[in-house]
Amino acid sequence: MPVRRGHVAPQNTFLDTIIRKFEGQSRKFIIANARVENCAVIYCNDGFCELCGYSRAEVMQRPCTCDFLHGPRTQRRAAAQIAQALLGAEERKVEIAFYRKDGSCFLCLVDVVPVKNEDGAVIMFILNFEVVMEKDMVGSPAHDTNHRGPPTSWLAPGRAKTFRLKLPALLALTARESSVRSGGAGGAGAPGAVVVDVDLTPAAPSSESLALDEVTAMDNHVAGLGPAEERRALVGPGSPPRSAPGQLPSPRAHSLNPDASGSSCSLARTRSRESCASVRRASSADDIEAMRAGVLPPPPRHASTGAMHPLRSGLLNSTSDSDLVRYRTISKIPQITLNFVDLKGDPFLASPTSDREIIAPKIKERTHNVTEKVTQVLSLGADVLPEYKLQAPRIHRWTILHYSPFKAVWDWLILLLVIYTAVFTPYSAAFLLKETEEGPPATECGYACQPLAVVDLIVDIMFIVDILINFRTTYVNANEEVVSHPGRIAVHYFKGWFLIDMVAAIPFDLLI
């Protein structure tokens, strides 16, 4: 008679799926529990143990900040960024110097990925580790590398530091407007667009060049630039800015003055950032001319202004700041037409079709709590990747769950009947059967004279019903998954307890 339990259901295979997918890609990662103190490590794979030199037993239950890997060259700011990422709910990448158990130093890129439950609360953290440099290539500990984003994938490793954006290309926007319009339909740009040429040739750093990471940081200074100062900065030398009595002219307006920039070969870094931020506020060169004239017309309804409409929906549905990093990277690809469009465009503009998908598509409701890094690593669709929660398995109709209350009560009843059979069957065979043979035949009273025979008949009927119930009862397979398919249940029961239950259900007393 089957006594099969499996009270692990309803099970959740999400954690096993993450481990299996990460292991298949030869990654070095740990999984931490966000619900406990210090976000203790609950799993670390073999790749991480080989990377740091510690065994799994030495890593388990330690804080996922990996303070046991810190050393003299470990930056405090990087460690603080990892700790801050564990307090938030967004994906974050941090470069930090770690030390192995043998004392060797290596520069590592740590990717902190939160995993949320159905309520939107962070319950786990996945920390992925990628070695960037070994100890002989690690720089000085005073050099802070965590304020910069990861290198873009479309640049060669040897040319990542030679990417320079020439400031004269930004200063000569109005001069290039006529050349853009003359391109017409034969050019790649839309009317009114501004073409910015980027020099990728390796050259020595000069005062006129600005690194790509500095251009990325310009967006942080746009908020500090007032509207009046932006307007004066875009007017140009024809209309000098008016300053109040006793007030000095704005240095932001002076930063885009061609006369002032041409007199000296070098520009201050602050002026460069502010000038680029001011130019980015204009949607095209037409807006710059309109600002000089004193009238700013409404933005025209053409394809170039609607190019950012799908980007707005993608940004609203993005799951991490990696989408913004990807957008900034692609927006700086050289030799393309940049349409400086305000994100607050007309909502009635139709979304044009684009061959290049900048932001990841909208994630469906079932995966809105899973970050983009987890979705990318697992390579699963929205119909396959579940949320991290207890999910009731989908069972067929008329199927009994093996952990249901009805099955528990039924098993206790069958257990009592088995005990009765084990006690009274030998007793009936030894004593009652002998008395029946010696006594007179009682054929007239039937079952009324033999109450134990009636009980034995009921017990046999219950055993037959138990066999039928076992054909529709779920079970737990070797992978700790609840199986509810009727065919698989029948095959599993035939290979197991079916023969024993059938022999126990045969009414031998009635056959004798």
Rank of each mutant, 00 (worst) to 15 (best):
R4N: 14
H7C: 07
N12K: 12
I18H: 03
K28L: 04
F29G: 01
F29E: 01
I30A: 01
I30N: 01
I31G: 01
N38L: 05
C39N: 15
C39T: 06
I42G: 01
C44R: 01
C44F: 01
N45Y: 01
D46H: 04
F48H: 01
C49R: 03
E50G: 09
E50N: 12
A57Q: 15
C66V: 14
A79M: 06
A80D: 08
A80M: 14
A83P: 15
L87F: 15
L87C: 15
G88C: 11
A89S: 14
E90F: 13
R92V: 11
K93H: 07
D111F: 05
D111R: 07
P114N: 04
V115N: 01
V115M: 10
E118F: 11
E118R: 06
D119P: 06
G120V: 06
F125K: 01
L127Y: 01
N128S: 12
F129M: 05
V131Y: 06
M137F: 15
V138T: 14
G139W: 06
H147D: 05
H147R: 07
R148K: 12
P150Y: 07
T152A: 05
S153C: 07
S153P: 13
W154N: 11
F163T: 15
F163P: 15
L167F: 15
L170H: 15
L173Q: 13
L173E: 14
T174H: 12
G184S: 06
A185K: 09
G187T: 11
V196I: 06
V196D: 02
V198N: 05
L200D: 11
P205N: 14
L210E: 06
D213R: 15
D219R: 10
D219T: 05
V222D: 05
G224V: 13
L225Y: 03
P240V: 12
P240K: 11
P241F: 15
S243P: 06
G246N: 04
G246Y: 14
A253W: 07
H254D: 12
N257Y: 11
A260W: 12
S261V: 13
L267I: 02
R271V: 05
R271H: 15
S272M: 09
E274Y: 03
E274K: 04
V279C: 12
R280M: 14
A285M: 15
D286Q: 14
E289N: 04
R292C: 05
G294C: 09
V295Y: 15
H309G: 14
P310K: 14
R312P: 14
R312S: 08
G314N: 14
L315M: 08
S322R: 09
D323H: 14
V325K: 12
K332I: 01
K332N: 08
I333L: 12
P334R: 07
I336W: 15
T337Y: 05
F340D: 08
K344A: 04
D346S: 14
F348L: 07
F348I: 13
A350R: 12
S351F: 04
S351M: 07
T353I: 14
S354A: 14
D355P: 12
D355H: 14
D355R: 07
R356K: 15
R356G: 10
I358G: 05
I358C: 12
R366D: 04
T367M: 14
V374I: 13
Q376C: 06
L378C: 05
G381Y: 13
G381M: 05
V384T: 14
V384S: 04
